[in-house]
Amino acid sequence: MNQILFGVIATMGVLSALGTVLARNLVHAGLFLVAFFFLIACQFVMLEAEFLAAVQVLVYIGAVAIILMFGIMLTRNIQGDDTTTVSRAGFIAGGLAAVGLLTVLIFGITHEEGRSGRPAWNSVTTRPAIYPASARKSESQAAAINNMGLAVGEDLLTRYIVAFEAAGILLTAALVGAIALAIQEGPVSDDPSDRVKSKQNAESLAADEAESLLTSSRA
């Protein structure tokens, strides 16, 4: 049952990843990417990390995909053109490199021998149980899995506090940097509504693009 479910999700995940990479139209690629993100969230559920799955959907589909879509809208013709991939030779070279790496990775994964008293990856076919209380050793893990939001919060503010603060600084820097980069030339004020304005610029730019699209489709 689980294996079938995994197989379905994995197949769809690989297919949507391929679609992202190969789709000519960038918005279609973005749509495939959204499907891929969602299937990764499904895999997180299969791994019993449902908090992470929710975070994945929230951050990737709710934010990253939207930003990417905005980026697509602002940087190209709305109609997909076919200059998004390299030449045939480059395509073959890239494909060969990818297939080669995949071979190496699969070989490595299936032939791993396990270091210093740990089992080889190949022989790990079951996960530590969390439902019955029999698995004493992973009790704290079981508690964490059953209420992951709580466990993540506690860990963030105790064990990973430095990383948490660093992530906060990084996000602030990224926010300021993104605004500073994306803001348009011209009369610029330094108030926090700049982000808003860049969004409005996005809107007006989109309007321009839409107009050009309409004229081109009429022609």
Partner: peptide, 27 residues
């Protein structure tokens, strides 16, 4: 689910994507 509220926020943010696609695909 123990993270029901996060789940709720996450799935309600999907609608933005649908709206974007609706507007984009209409030409």
């Amino acid at each position: 689910p123990p993270s029901g509220l996060i789940y709720l926020i996450a799935v309600s943010s999907l609608s933005a994507l649908g709206i974007f696609l609706a507007g984009w695909s209409s030409r």
